[in-house]
């Protein structure tokens, strides 16, 4: 079947098998490998992307269901103005180790901050509670999101 959707601002059209998962569509058809997968049961959240401005687990969405919708992935966080503060926050506060959960965590963080620019610790923990990080013990992810809340402007890259 034919699907058409907008991914990171670009319209893409592909001929696909109806059963193809959105996560595989993004990774394999489009080559956007920043979105990961880590389970078979919608538990890990390494696959989180946005569909029409809401985070979704892309392993739990068929590519066919995204037909006509807007998808945003981690590759779209950095814009011409520089890194998203969330990206900068993850780097500054050591919010990642292996980096595997990181794209999904950052997509949720950006969504949260768009709705609640000044979330407290409990709100941040709640927001990422559908996602698992096996490396960081979450502390520095929470701090990274707080960092982004305190530095709302897009920053220069100072890696």
């Amino acid at each position: 079947m034919q699907v058409t959707m907008t991914v990171n601002g670009d319209e893409v059209a592909r001929e696909i098998e109806p059963r193809l998962l959105l996560v595989h569509f993004i990774r394999e058809e489009l080559g956007l490998t920043g979105t990961h997968w880590g389970c078979d049961t919608s538990n890990c959240g390494t696959c989180v992307v946005w569909m029409d401005d809401e985070p979704v687990k892309s392993c739990t969405v068929l590519a066919a269901m995204a037909h006509g919708h807007r998808i945003r992935t981690v590759e779209d966080l950095e814009r011409a103005g520089g890194l998203d503060p969330v990206q900068q926050g993850f780097m500054d506060e050591h919010g990642l180790q292996c980096g595997f959960c990181t794209p999904g965590m950052m997509m949720t963080a950006r969504w949260l901050l768009d709705r609640d620019p000044d979330p407290d610790e409990a709100t941040i923990r709640e927001a990422i509670s559908g996602q698992i990080c096996r490396c960081t013990g979450y502390e520095n992810i929470v701090r990274a999101v707080r960092w982004a809340a305190e530095h709302p402007a897009t920053s220069e890259v100072h890696a």
Partner: peptide, 30 residues
């Protein structure tokens, strides 16, 4: 969009807190 004024922390010449070099790719999904 404006640029953040804070200067980046200097890289220590040896031991000390510094941001991870590898993170520049991980935070970009690369």
């Amino acid at each position: 969009m404006t640029t953040i004024e804070e200067p980046p922390a200097p890289t220590p010449m040896g031991f000390g807190r510094m941001k991870r070099k590898e993170d520049v790719r991980f935070i970009r999904g690369k």
